[in-house]
């Protein structure tokens, strides 16, 4: 019982972070058919911005957190305006954008390294203390991560379903040409999407670094997981990504406990392969329909 509870807590914490990391990536792919290789470094930017605001400037925690989110959104916007915008609608976009965003990622990571060095700074976004459920101690930090992830993802889901601009984003994702015909400016929608993805990635980065530390390459590992999650969920499926993230988080925690920590990621990948053999388009993805 105790173990199950511990797995649940660890799994949900992991899952919540994975979800934050994946949802933005799924949204970007879903709307723009763009694999954003810089999504991981967006996480890093958010984490460092919060560190800078909280530890170096001494801003209160909520402000530092918001500053981190803003930095993530800003970097998404800047990348759209300086890079992505010019590549949209070009031939071979889906491949070229992978290369281009990977370049942006390397550049940003190098800049962070130059500016901050590689010292593993402590993320100031921490909530001290624990409470107990039976014999299990649960940190407020874990609860905070769950609550923040749920709030942010819920908030974005609400925006996507209940606002004019959210509707436009979903419309563009589902049928870009029809959205254009409805008067949706794709360029502006893409900008909004990259800002949202940047904000979500930043939140993921801040929370992940609060459980580990800052480092310029901290985004690489979560990006890999986010990709895996998006593929399992079905490329571009936003809700699917959220559900798959939680499922994989729980799965990983259970594997770590029952089989050993070192098997966590490899077994997870094995499950992914099985899922993809069984459903090549992912759990929530639609099969590619050949159009005439």
């Amino acid at each position: 019982m105790q173990a199950v509870l511990q797995i649940l807590i660890t799994g949900l914490t992991l899952g919540a972070m994975y979800a934050l990391a994946s949802v933005g990536l799924a949204l970007t792919y879903g709307t723009m058919r763009m694999f954003n290789m810089a999504h991981g470094v967006f996480m890093t930017v958010g984490a460092y911005a919060t560190y800078m605001a909280g530890s170096l400037w001494g801003l209160p925690l909520p402000l530092a957190f918001l500053f981190g989110l803003a930095a993530g959104g800003l970097i998404g916007a800047v990348m759209h305006l300086l890079v992505v915008r010019f590549m949209l609608d070009t031939e071979g976009f889906e491949v070229n954008i992978i290369v281009a965003t990977a370049g942006v990622a390397i550049l940003l990571q190098d800049l962070l390294l130059k500016y901050y060095g590689a010292y593993p700074f402590r993320q100031p976004a921490q909530i001290e203390g624990v409470f107990r459920i039976g014999d299990i101690a649960v940190t407020y930090q874990s609860v905070g991560i769950l609550v923040l992830a749920a709030t942010l993802i819920g908030g974005i889901a609400w925006l996507l379903t209940h606002t004019r601009f959210g509707l436009a984003i979903r419309a563009t994702a589902m049928n870009r040409e029809a959205a254009l015909l409805m008067g949706v400016e794709a360029g502006r929608t893409y900008l909004q999407v990259l800002i949202i993805a940047g904000v979500l990635a930043a939140a993921a980065g801040i929370l992940i670094s609060s459980l580990a530390t800052l480092s310029p390459d901290m985004g690489a590992n979560p990006l890999l997981r986010a990709f895996v999650i998006c593929v399992v969920a079905g490329l571009g499926s936003v809700t699917g990504a959220g559900i798959a993230a939680l499922a994989l988080g729980l799965c990983e925690a259970a594997i770590q406990y029952y089989l050993g920590v070192r098997y966590g990621f490899p077994v997870m990948l094995l499950l992914v392969i099985i899922v993809l053999i069984w459903r090549p388009a992912g759990l929530f993805g639609q099969q590619e329909v050949v159009r005439s």
Partner: peptide, 20 residues
């Protein structure tokens, strides 16, 4: 005798075994 990955930031499952 437990082998963890690097990096490992979530120690929950390992700690659960220690506590058991």
């Amino acid at each position: 005798y437990e082998t963890v990955q690097a990096p490992t930031s979530e120690w929950g499952p390992t700690l659960a075994k220690l506590r058991e």
